[in-house]
Simulated scan of single mutants.
Amino acid sequence: MGLRKLAIAGVAAALALAAGCAGGGSGSGGGEVRLGIGGQPLLVFMPTTLADRLGYYREEGLNVRLEDLGSGAKALQALQGGSVDVVSGYYDHTIQMQAKNRPTTAFVGMLRYPSFVFAVSPKASKPINSFADLKGAKVGVTSPGSSTDFFLKNMLVRHGLAATDAAPQAIGGDASAVAAMENGQVDAAVMLDPAYSTLVKRIGGQNVKVLSDTRTLDGVQRDLGVTSYPASALYSGSSWLTDNPETARKLARAIKRALDFIHSHSGAEVAAKMPPEYSAGDAAIYAQAIEAAKSAFSPDGRISPEGAEAVYGVLRQFTPEIANAKIDVSKTFTNDYVPAN
């Protein structure tokens, strides 16, 4: 190859490399955003998938790749490991990360009530009529270190037990959770919809004893003593938000649009937009679960400071690492990226 051709090839290679660097990131330049979800079929994370199914990310000019990571703990691990840019998970993980000196910030809220149902298996190994009876019991959670695990520990402590008095068992959050409860693999479980609604239909509501239900305002007030308890949200490392403000703003806008769609359409209409396999073969139950969950979804995508403080107050009761750390709750969330209306 002559000198002229070598020079042309070198310029072309340099231009290609520059173009690759410009488009390969997840900032406002239009690169791919890797979004990890802590259990994609679960209703608590539904706005994340719904925004994709309705084309909202694309309309915002984003190329979003959704990755189902099965649990909030695994999604958080993926963020820490750098395999995802943003997590659709529970807000409480941002407080956990600040205690570890790893700044993480939630930038759009999806749930204002945690929507956990603490249910007893009809095949429990011993009678369980109250939280006091959980001492020594096996309790299903999506995975150890997840928000369902945090909730288990909180409820144990709130009812006079030690956070370690029950043994958490990883059972996932969808069909595997239903099977674990049906088969007596666990004595009780912290469940989420649509798994809980599926369990009720399969074995009958009269056969499912509920110790706690935080899907409604009444339940949150009774079981957590607050009126707002931020739950599922999009969060990322604080440095990612600083480097990618426009991408975060577009993600927040897409999620807000998905929340608006949920509140302005029937459960059946919302269900029709979701992947059919998420209904686990029962479209009617899935639609009913969505309809019942509407009040738990945020009306505006914002995280209330009072709610954030309530989450911190709960976590520090049973997590020494958080209790002993200097936590600035105001740095664990921001509403700066959420559209005003």
Results as ranks from 00 to 15, higher is better:
197 S>P: 07
295 S>P: 10
118 F>M: 08
140 G>Q: 06
22 A>R: 15
281 G>R: 10
96 Q>A: 14
18 A>L: 12
138 K>N: 13
129 N>R: 15
99 A>Q: 12
237 G>P: 08
14 A>P: 02
223 D>N: 14
278 Y>S: 13
238 S>W: 00
129 N>W: 11
333 F>S: 08
45 F>N: 15
99 A>R: 07
102 R>M: 14
183 N>H: 12
114 P>H: 10
302 R>L: 12
3 L>W: 02
281 G>W: 02
144 P>C: 08
143 S>Y: 01
176 S>E: 08
176 S>M: 08
223 D>R: 09
119 A>D: 06
224 L>A: 09
130 S>K: 11
284 A>S: 14
28 S>L: 05
159 H>M: 03
227 T>Q: 15
331 K>T: 15
252 A>Y: 01
166 A>V: 05
135 K>Q: 09
288 Q>Y: 06
52 D>Y: 14
73 A>W: 00
244 N>P: 02
309 E>A: 11
258 A>Y: 00
196 Y>S: 01
138 K>Y: 08
266 S>D: 05
144 P>Q: 14
75 A>R: 11
8 I>H: 05
338 V>R: 03
173 G>I: 01
88 S>T: 11
169 Q>V: 15
117 V>G: 09
316 R>S: 10
297 F>T: 03
25 G>V: 07
182 E>F: 04
280 A>Q: 12
50 L>M: 12
114 P>L: 05
22 A>E: 14
253 R>T: 13
186 V>K: 12
83 S>N: 10
93 H>R: 10
68 D>G: 06
148 T>L: 02
1 M>P: 03
263 H>N: 04
203 I>H: 11
191 M>D: 02
150 F>Q: 06
340 A>R: 14
173 G>T: 06
270 V>F: 00
141 V>N: 01
284 A>W: 04
284 A>R: 14
79 L>R: 07
212 S>K: 13
64 V>A: 10
230 P>T: 02
223 D>P: 00
108 V>R: 08
110 M>H: 07
188 A>C: 11
219 G>D: 00
221 Q>D: 04
71 S>K: 12
10 G>D: 01
96 Q>W: 13
112 R>Q: 12
78 A>L: 03
59 E>L: 08
40 Q>A: 15
38 G>T: 11
21 C>P: 01
75 A>G: 15
36 G>W: 00
207 N>M: 09
177 A>N: 09
191 M>P: 01
290 I>H: 02
101 N>K: 13
216 T>P: 06
188 A>T: 14
334 T>Q: 04
289 A>E: 00
205 G>C: 07
161 L>S: 06
182 E>I: 11
215 R>M: 02
316 R>P: 07
33 V>A: 07
39 G>H: 06
229 Y>W: 08
225 G>L: 03
64 V>L: 03
197 S>E: 06
254 A>W: 00
166 A>D: 04
268 A>C: 06
62 L>H: 07
210 V>I: 10
5 K>F: 01
127 P>D: 09
190 V>Q: 13
168 P>K: 10
68 D>W: 05
30 G>F: 03
314 V>T: 07
336 D>N: 15
46 M>R: 10
185 Q>A: 11
